[in-house]
Each structure stands twice: as structure tokens, then as C-alpha cells.
Design a protein around this nucleic acid. Sequence first.
DNA 1: CACCAATCGCTAGTTTAGCTAGCAATTCCT
DNA 2: AGGAATTGCTAGCTAAACTAGCGATTGGTG
Lengths: 157, 157
Amino acid sequence: MSERWLPQTDHERAVMRVLTSIRGMSDAMERMHSGMKGDMDMNATDVAALRLLIIREQQKRSVSPHDIARHLRISTASTTKLLDRLEASGHVERLAHPTDRRGRVVVLTDESRAAFFRIFGVRLRAMREMALRFDEDELAIVGRFLDDLAGAMDPSD
Amino acid sequence: MSERWLPQTDHERAVMRVLTSIRGMSDAMERMHSGMKGDMDMNATDVAALRLLIIREQQKRSVSPHDIARHLRISTASTTKLLDRLEASGHVERLAHPTDRRGRVVVLTDESRAAFFRIFGVRLRAMREMALRFDEDELAIVGRFLDDLAGAMDPSD
DNA sequence: CACCAATCGCTAGTTTAGCTAGCAATTCCT
DNA sequence: AGGAATTGCTAGCTAAACTAGCGATTGGTG
């Protein structure tokens, strides 16, 4: 996360500290996600698929098996099996695509959505409350930083 | 990431935006990590192990197979196999522990370290340069936010 | 408008990487 | 000194990814 680059100035040392915080946060995030795995007892990718569905649902965007394959970077064949598992366990349904008869639309079941928020509601609330302790100006700075960070990490060099 | 909680005030809307940025950044991070996977062609946990080794090396802390198992949340048996793979591909060496004759110390090979920085140096530099565009006060705010965020995500309820 | 290429989701069979159980060697704790 | 705990390993099993390829459907082009 920091190579063999030696910070010289106070400013550079501050950057160093922030990079360390990013790493800490990223570790915490990974622990949270792998925690979901245990809590809902399913494997990591199945949980990741569920997260995608939750997010897309809130954006009112439909999700196809192909979307899942792309997002999780697994083959469409593996995605079929993943959906078989999620369907068998009652987490999702595969509906006919309204216009393309080859396609499917994957939707969450009510139970699955409820389970998700039952388990992660606590953390989501904790995160919101934490963020509320920062004023609007501070949140703007943080938001800008996070967006820039996402940009810097993106492989679109 | 945001439930069906409706932000009312400007402050709440700012929190909402920041939570969205967190998600975006977290997605970018995941893409970056799974990108490493492709670039160095090895699997996700093997790359995660390599990252642990890089980090610990910079902290001048030695790494045992047990440490790896704990960090990756896999069994020690799986860790043995993981190390077999990394050793076979020339990424690590297993040395004798200096004092505990049961233990091993896992160290990176020079080639592996070089490959890591060859591939991720670009991104690390981009991240540092991005962070440098924020002044020290801003970095302090961001750092505090990230640390709090890590705390909020932690399952120590 | 007819056809061919591309896309979608799926099945079959293989490989990879995790798991549990248990073991020998060593160390720690009284 | 002696039993309990710890370390890393092997063996065997299982879960979940992969590749290859198929039928159905769609869209673009001559």
C-alpha cells in the first residue's frame, strides 16, 4: 500500500497516514463482507450477488444473469449455478425478461431482502450515525476524496 | 447500503451521498483486487496473502502460516496448500523460525515483490498523488472519517 | 425479407481450492 | 517431569469455479 516511498514533509506524512487508514477501512470492509457470509450462511460470491441485487433494486435497475456474471467476474455458467443455489434457498426468482425472450430478470424475494436488512441494518445504521457526526462541509471533503480514490484505483490508466 | 431510509434534511442528504461514495470506492477497490488476480494470474486468496506479506514486510513484522490463516480466515490446512502454491510459483519461501522449531517464517522472494510493485506501483502512485491534492486539515478529516467507518463496520456490536 | 452472426442462459464434465480429521514434533505450564 | 497446547502438515472429501458447447432468440446486412 505504500511501497518504499519515504515521506519527507508533514504533508507527505499526512498522506501516508491516510493511506494507512484506507487500508484499515478496506480490511474492515472485507471482514464485514465475509461476516455476512457466516451470518446468512452462504458463500462469498452468493452474498456479493445479493448485495448487487439490493443496490440495483434501490436504483430501480433490473439485473440479468449476465450482469451478475460481469459484476462478480465469473462465467455465465457459474452464474447459472449461483442462481440455482439462490433460487433453491429462496433468495431470488428468475422471471421472464419483458421484451427479450432469451433473457431473464433476477429479483430478490421479500424474505431475502428482509433477512439482509435484519442482519446488516445494524451496521448500516451505525455507519449513518457515524457519518452524521460530521458536518456538511466535512462530508463534502470526504465524498470528494472517496470519489477521487475510486478514480485512482480504477484500471482506466 | 442505504435501506429504505429517506433523508429529510440537507445534512442527511449529504450523509446519503457519502454512503454512495463509500459504495463506489468499495466497488473500485474490489475491482482493483480482482484485477491483481488477473494481472498476476493467481487466485483471490493467494493475492490477498501476497498483500499481507507486502504490508507486514514494510512494518518489519514476520509472518507465520498461522498469521496468514487468521488474516484470510481459512484453515491452517488450506494455508499449507496456499503456501505450496506460492512456493511452487516462486512467490514465497518458507524459512525456519529462529526460535520456535515448530514454526515457519514466510518471506517474499525478490521477484514477487518486484512483480507486485511493477503491477501496482502505478495505482499506488496515483493514490498518493490524489491524496497530495488534499491539504493536511482535509486529510485529517478524511482519516478520522475512515477510521470511524472501519469502527462502524466492525462486528464488535 | 431472408439469412447469418451474435447473444442469452443453460448443461455436462473437469479442475481448483476450500473444509474436517487427525498426526508428529515441539513448546509451554505447572 | 509430564500433560496440555500449539505448529504445520497429510489425507480425503466437497463446493464452486472453469471450459466447451448447445438450443432458442434477436439483430444487422445484403
